[in-house]
Design a binder for these strands. Structure first.
Length: 930
RNA sequence: GCCCGGGUGGUGGAAUGGUAGACACGCAGGACUUAAAAUCCUGUGGCCCACAAGGCUGUACGGGUUCAAGUCCCGUCCCGGGCACCA
């Protein structure tokens, strides 16, 4: 058989589609396997060869598990809401619904071309109302639930209302403290609650809801007339245009993911992810244990400053306290004499953008408030400062300054000439030296520290916490770095919030029957020029009834992508986000494949949504993704030309240093082996049509660099072109053959020929098939069973590149035979089928096998055929291999030892001496120690 | 600065502590061909040796553990990724 990929690939793709080969039917009693690719955003650029890397791997696993008899769910869909889609639409001057539809169609066509075994009937699209109806429903659930810290789970907000009317918020007040309801005592009674106005009650409940409103800064860009996302702001100015960006405080929606911090941290133990991935999440959650300690204000208003520290042992080394500028407490403690100073300082800091504040992290600034606190243990006066190095959003927004043992406090103290008091001495050293830097190690013993003198750091930490708790001035506390998730975007292309405000401004969610709240069509969805969503322009939509106002913000990209994996289980269900039966059957994703760029965003939100639904008893698993496999990136290899500045002349790379040039990306389609095809270049770049070229000899040499594959760098390789030139099966196998799946590597076509040749040789194996042959010969069975064994083992380990090698070794073996029994080739073709499904199917039918190869059983190997009759042992002296010795496989170690020592070749190394020791590792090696 | 990965032929890469370089690309030589392409065969880490036989050397660098180290331990350098005032 000759290998004619164009012909066979379209034939079998059509066949699979007609037969509904990949549509998934839940089969109770059959084991299931759910393999999922990370949700792609359908960009306008289409797929490049980097995208399919993970898709091919997941498709291979999906096919492998089908062969193994599993019921496989392998869906694909599109994360089509969000900022990139909106920007792409604005750029192209077309409506996002239109561009999104086109882009999705292009993606589907490209994926089908690769022979992916997705069940397209289950496709979900986040911008489709039948999908986002359930995103909105989920938001309403979050709004209607609060997190009970005692029970460590979400409960209906109605339970909380009942608790309040029965006993007030006693025991549940801590959650309120973090929110600061204006003019409210932190603890209220049942009678207080019944006395509160409706508005006040709504405000209080807002501090408990898992989806809640609060105030947050947005990046408002006056010049562009829009709010910018954080990644659209660079160095305090807009990335586009470089206009100034100002921070504006706005009421926005948040998700209280922080309540789940501990479970998100702890449950990482239950998933099979790479250590680095888990580490990234753990670090992002940032769990730290320590002490919450109160310092009363001295000679002033009755106030306390609460600080959080992870080093309670250093409490006697405190020489100042520092508040974050965001911490409003300074207003209450700053005496009139210092007021203006502090106010000016805080205003200047708060005016800076997040980026600006981060940009000069090393710069020390601050101001003394004029107030003093009393040290809770020593009773000494401690000055209170305000400084931007203290973060408003972490801990209590206040720290105890221990300059001797914290480098940030040290820098601050040195800058403002505050005393540095050493209280921890490194092991084996004595005190008294002047510190040139903070000693931050947690080893050593305590000095100048009252009741903890002489204790070790660990002992002192514990002692101080216990003492603080005993005296009622502090308590043990766990803090998290994780912040609540901002869920509002002032944009058009996203899910509208199913929320209206009444005349008092109280938020109400829509009744479920009114879902979906469809995104109203808008011709002009460009920015309004005000810090609000374009939806605000639709007056009729915003005011559906007198006194009623709609929320005009839309949801962020992660709203739809945080739960889509459940929808695939039951994608068309009009009554629920997924049926109980479907959820119970599919449980969770068994294998999730995607890039590491989603380490902390998507993966964390998806875990949070899952835990929330789990608390509600709606899903059976508390983790969405059991096994996570990260694929590496395929980078682009860019080429560059050098143009003389101000002239229409291009100079070859090695001559360029002699001129004043600009280095420009050149389309890699005009370049072969770094040599520019000048005519192609003239055709592709209008300006270059009449350009002059300075060559090296007769060639124009380009520079090159490995960069991210992107349209703007002109280095994109389109899979369609590779498929056209070789075949889909070639591309699939080649991407797998490139190296370990998790490694990043630049795209290069050197080597793709080898894979193509391999497939051609596999096709040629059909010429060796002898249909008259009574039974397979030993030689072919040996090749077959070894291949089954190695390919199976490597697939289980996701070692796709070595699978390809083993398939090649198998083919090399078969090609050397005179003839092959059809059964032998049929089994080999099943092994090939996950990688090269089209050719496998073609050969399967050539052999006259039943049905489709995609439904064939995975072959099992017989150990007897994988073992050789004889083993070639390397014989080494002192670890250096000197010769090899072939013996029967069942040779006993003692016999082997004798044979090795008596071998004539051994004499040269033995030189008549007795070996000290002989090591025989059966099946491996003989080592003679002299 | 801190936390993860990773450094193996000309190239991509392979190797449960047990013959380093599987499998491929490239290259060289050969067969077929009028010729080319395609295909097939042979060789291919480096060095010494006319060849062969054989030897030496070799997995970023320096030490160590072991009968045996690419693999384990300690230190150094380089590359990639993540985090970065989180008290």
């Amino acid at each position: 058989m000759e290998y004619r990929p164009q012909e066979i690939e379209s034939r079998w793709q059509k066949y699979w589609e007609e037969q509904g080969m990949y549509s998934t039917q839940e089969k109770p009693g059959q084991p299931k396997f759910y393999v999922l690719d990370m949700f792609p955003y359908p960009s306008g650029a289409g797929l490049h060869v980097g995208h399919p890397l993970g898709y091919i791997a997941s498709d291979i696993m999906a096919r492998y598990y089908r062969h193994k008899g599993f019921c496989v769910l392998h869906p694909m869909g599109f994360d089509s809401f969000g900022l990139p889609a909106e920007q792409y639409a604005i750029q192209t001057g077309r409506h996002p619904s239109e561009t999104t539809r086109e882009n999705i169609e292009r993606f589907i066509r490209q994926l089908k071309l690769l022979g992916m075994s997705y069940d397209w009937d289950r496709m979900v699209i986040t911008s489709d109302p039948s999908y986002y109806r359930w995103t909105q429903w989920l938001f309403i659930q979050l709004f209607n639930h609060w997190y009970d810290r005692r029970a460590q789970k979400a409960r209906p907000i109605s339970d909380l209302v009942e608790i309040f009317s029965r006993q007030g918020n006693q025991g549940y007040h801590e959650q309120l403290l973090t929110g600061n309801v204006e003019g409210l005592e932190p603890i209220f009674s049942a009678s207080d609650w019944t006395g509160f106005s409706e508005k006040t009650r709504a405000n209080i409940l807002m501090h408990y809801r898992l989806a809640y409103q609060s105030f947050a800064y947005v990046n408002w860009c006056e010049a562009l007339g829009t709010v910018l996302a954080n990644d659209e702001v660079k160095d305090g100015v807009s990335e586009r245009g470089g206009y100034p960006v100002e921070r504006r405080l706005m009421r926005q929606w948040f998700l209280r993911i922080t309540e789940y911090a501990d479970r998100l941290h702890k449950d990482l133990d239950d998933v099979d992810w790479s250590d680095s991935m888990k580490e990234m999440q753990r670090h992002w959650i940032g769990k730290s244990e320590g002490l919450l300690l109160r310092f009363p204000i001295q000679n002033g208003p009755h106030q306390e400053i609460e600080v959080f520290t992870t080093r309670p042992d250093t409490v006697f080394g405190v020489t100042f306290l520092t508040l974050a500028p965001e911490n409003e407490l300074w207003r209450r403690i700053t005496p009139a004499s210092h007021r203006q100073n502090v106010e000016e300082y805080c205003a200047s800091v708060l005016h800076k953008s997040e980026r600006e504040r981060q940009a000069d992290v090393r710069h020390v600034s601050g101001v003394f408030t004029g107030a003093y606190a009393r040290h809770p243990f020593s009773g000494e006066n401690i000055p209170v400062w305000v400084s931007e190095y203290v973060l408003g959003g972490y801990g209590t927004g206040a720290v105890m300054g221990v300059p001797a043992h914290d480098s940030r406090d040290f820098r601050f103290a040195r800058h403002f000439n505050l005393p540095v008091l050493q209280v921890v001495v490194p092991p084996g050293q004595t005190t008294g030296r002047d510190l040139s830097e903070a000693y931050e190690e947690k080893s050593g013993y305590l000095v100048q520290s009252g009741f903890i003198n002489g204790l070790s750091v660990a002992e002192a930490m514990e002692a101080v916490i216990q003492e603080a708790e005993a005296k009622g001035i502090g308590r043990r506390q766990v803090n998290y770095r994780l912040r609540d998730a901002n869920f509002s975007r002032q944009r058009y292309w996203g899910e509208p919030f199913p929320v209206v405000y009444d005349s008092q401004g109280i938020a109400h969610t829509l009744p479920p029957a009114e879902l979906p709240l469809e995104l109203p069509p808008m011709e002009d969805f460009r920015p309004t020029g005000k810090p609000e969503s374009p939806l605000a322009k639709l007056k009729d939509w915003v005011h559906p009834a007198p006194g009623i106002t709609r929320e005009t913000d839309t949801m962020p990209g992660f709203a739809g992508s945080s739960w889509y994996f459940f929808r695939y289980m039951d994608p068309h269900n009009p009554h629920a986000f997924a049926s109980r039966e479907a959820l119970d059957y599919w449980q969770q994703v068994d294998l999730y494949i995607g890039g590491t760029e989603h380490a902390v965003g998507h993966l964390l939100y998806a875990r949070f949504f899952t835990k929330f639904l789990y608390d509600l008893g709606l899903v059976p698993c508390h983790e969405p993704f059991r096994k996570l496999l990260n694929q590496g990136m395929i980078q682009g290899r860019s080429n560059f030309v050098f143009r003389l500045k101000g002239e229409n002349t291009y100079v070859s790379k090695n001559l360029a240093p002699q001129y004043d040039t600009v280095r420009l990306n050149v389309d890699i389609r005009c370049v072969k082996d770094d040599i520019l095809d000048v005519e192609a270049f003239r055709r592709s770049v209008p300006d270059a049509a009449h350009a002059h070229f300075i060559l090296e000899g007769d060639r124009y040499v380009c520079d090159w660099e490995i960069e991210k594959m992107s349209k703007s760098k002109l280095n994109v390789v389109n899979p369609d072109d590779v498929v056209a030139q070789y075949s889909a099966d070639t591309l699939r196998m080649y991407e797998m053959f490139l190296g370990p799946i998790d490694q990043s590597k630049p795209w290069s076509t050197s080597g793709i020929e080898g894979v193509f040749r391999f497939l051609r040789r596999v096709a040629a194996l059909t010429d060796l098939v002898d249909f008259q042959k009574a039974a397979p010969e030993d030689a072919e069975l040996r090749i077959l069973h070894k291949t089954i064994k190695t390919v199976t083992k490597d697939l289980e380990n996701f070692s796709f590149n070595t699978c390809v090698s083993h398939l090649m070794i198998g083919q090399n073996g078969f090609s050397d035979l005179k003839s092959i029994h059809p059964d032998t080739l049929a089994q080999y073709v099943v092994l090939l089928s996950p990688f090269a499904p089209h050719l496998a199917e073609e050969i399967w039918h050539f052999l006259g096998c039943e049905g489709s190869v995609t439904q064939a059983s995975w072959p099992l190997y017989k150990e007897e055929f994988t073992k050789e009759a004889s083993i070639i042992y390397p014989v080494s002296f002192n670890g250096k291999t000197r010769f090899t010795l072939e013996v029967a496989a069942d040779t006993q170690p003692s016999e082997l030892e004798t044979k090795a020592l008596n071998d004539p070749r051994a004499q040269r190394w033995l030189e008549g001496r007795q070996p000290k020791k002989v090591i025989v590792v059966p099946g491996r090696i003989v080592n003679i120690v002299m």
